[in-house]
Design a protein around this nucleic acid. Structure first.
Lengths: 343, 343
DNA sequence: CTGAAAGCGCTTACAG
DNA sequence: CTGAAAGCGCTTACAG
């Protein structure tokens, strides 16, 4: 069991003070006018002995951990995990580590995780703000720690964020369906006030209204509901027989939709519909027929998030100037929305 | 901007020493014979002021972080993310946090992550050991830090691990195909020495040989290959026209297989085969026809991992007694392996 | 150019 | 029953 070597050991070996060693290690040799010879001697020994500064001590002393907290509903969702992947790359290029975690839509868990982040003294936060956490985030922002939101935002919350144009996304998808001959387009979403979900519905409604078509919105209740989500969808499909297309407002809603069809199929009752899902993911491509998707520009989102965060971390500017970025989605057109066949 | 309150503030307010406060906070009030009245006074103030000990300072002093490092190839793979999920639950019940990370099959990245873990002073490690990291792990184990492996193990590496019976898993799946009338069963795997992959092949071979059927093994090369994995599979399927069933040795291989079929379909050349995948995941259930899978008992694996780890963390026993657990898989039978139709 | 010393916020052996 | 003080391993203002 090797003993961890420390700054003191280096200093002793070279008969110099730990101050000097610390300066060299932190790249302040020049600034502190330490001779090149000595600098090299220190660096060589550090290399040879594989000295690694103790992060705990360092953080305790400097108050910085070089860690960023990342909070989302569920990091195993394709959209979030893909954002996480790109963020991780960008962050490590800049010497930051990211601490990932998921709230699983549980308010207590979310509060607990924020607590853990604080406890771990993260230097900054990136999150897709869970519902009902607005007050906690306000408090957090008050403490001047950098916070950047994505995916969703709260209209009256002044902060930095990176989001997509949800209205445009569903508007274009709806328009695409209309162009391909569909006239009875359903929209299945969540029963929620989350701004991005409201926006997705607005985009759908604008396109439908523009063409004087009927609005068919179904809001699934995911909690405190007597009926399961699949039962809710089944009754929607059964009562809306004229439907010829449907847009799912998020990928897990789409999954539930596919489950519903599967179940209805057993009884030979599955409707034949054109399908569009918000968020693109593997399964959509493999489903038969492959499903058209409104895809978010994940890499761009991640890049913007890190850029904003780094500028805040470095600038040390606590000015109340917030960066707010809105990106466009793209429509990945697949077989599920092919031009409607007549008859 | 609220100032972080600390142990000293509590002590000052109550006119007692920080020693006493520390004892109370750490539940040593009784042991240290601190009066109930005082204990309550301290606890009440802690509650009222929302005092949270500074973890950095605490860890620096005690040498414990209550953090467990978790390392796998890719945490977004369904198998790993599901293990991660259960582990997280179990760990937090015992006051531990887990630090999750993925090597993405990159050796340098893996070494770097182990470095980060050491840097963060994790108290223990849980990992699916990446290829080529054997020596690093040996060094790690030498330092007496608890390490538990899962998913795979290295035969000549003495340590704790939780694995599944891979041989039995593919043996049973192969047997199931044979029982349902299939006689030309292919096995598509990785070109690797990883023990669990070798075992999966052995299980297949035993069942095939027992019935005197032909062995059809294809080892896909994922790196340094002139041909992509899909091209390799395509040529395998094209040269083995008699095939009537195929077992994919891991879920990402299965995904590539489905991609291959999709591409061959365009040219009307996709073979009609019974399919089995190692590891169960969402897509298999939704594919048409739904695909039979060899499922690992993820919850059991996670439970065993935590149990072993906790006993090592608490026992402080550096005895060279290793716990090694082997669990059974189950076969989720779906439409893809229905009894073979004649003609 | 370089070093002695204070301090980050805790825990705990020791003393009374 | 309770407290003064050392020490975990660093960084940095200050002094020379």
């Amino acid at each position: 069991m090797k003993k961890k070597i420390q700054i003191k050991d280096i200093a002793n070996e070279l008969n110099i003070s730990i101050t000097t060693v610390s300066f060299v290690i932190n790249g302040k040799a020049k600034e502190k006018n330490i001779s090149k010879t000595l600098t090299k001697k220190v660096l060589d020994l550090v290399e040879k002995w594989g000295y690694q500064p103790n992060t705990l001590a360092k953080s305790l002393r400097t108050g910085k951990t070089n860690v960023i907290g990342f909070l989302v509903d569920d990091i195993s969702e394709p959209f979030f995990s893909s954002i996480a992947h790109f963020l991780d790359q960008k962050a490590s290029e800049s010497g930051y580590k990211i601490l990932f975690s998921s709230t699983h839509n549980n308010h207590n868990k979310a509060v607990e995780l924020l607590q853990i982040f604080r406890d771990r003294h993260v230097d900054a936060y990136i999150m897709a703000l869970p519902e009902g956490l607005e007050q906690e985030i306000k408090n957090l922002i008050q403490t001047n720690v950098p916070v950047v939101l994505f995916d969703r935002y709260v209209p009256d919350l002044e902060t930095d964020y990176v989001v997509i144009d949800n209205i445009e996304g569903t508007y274009n998808a709806t328009q695409h369906l209309i162009n391909n001959g569909y006239k009875n387009i359903g929209f299945i979403t969540l029963d929620t006030d989350l701004q991005q979900m409201v926006d997705r519905e607005i985009g759908y409604e604008r396109a439908i209204k523009k063409h004087d078509l009927p609005l068919k919105v179904k809001k699934i209740k995911y909690r405190n509901a007597d009926l399961g989500s699949i039962a809710q969808m089944t009754s929607f499909f059964e009562s809306e027989k004229q439907l010829d297309a449907v847009i799912f407002a998020a990928n897990y809603i789409c999954l539930d939709g596919l489950r519903t069809f599967k179940q209805m199929e057993v009884n030979g009752l599955a409707p034949k519909l054109a399908l569009v899902s918000f968020d693109d993911f593997e399964l959509l491509e493999f489903y038969k027929p492959a499903i058209t998707a409104i895809a978010q520009p994940v890499q761009e989102i991640a890049e913007n998030l890190m850029k904003i965060l780094l500028s805040k971390l470095n600038a040390n500017d606590s000015s109340k100037h917030f960066k707010q970025v809105v990106l466009s989605t793209s429509l990945n057109i697949r077989e599920s929305t092919e031009r409607k066949k007549l008859g």
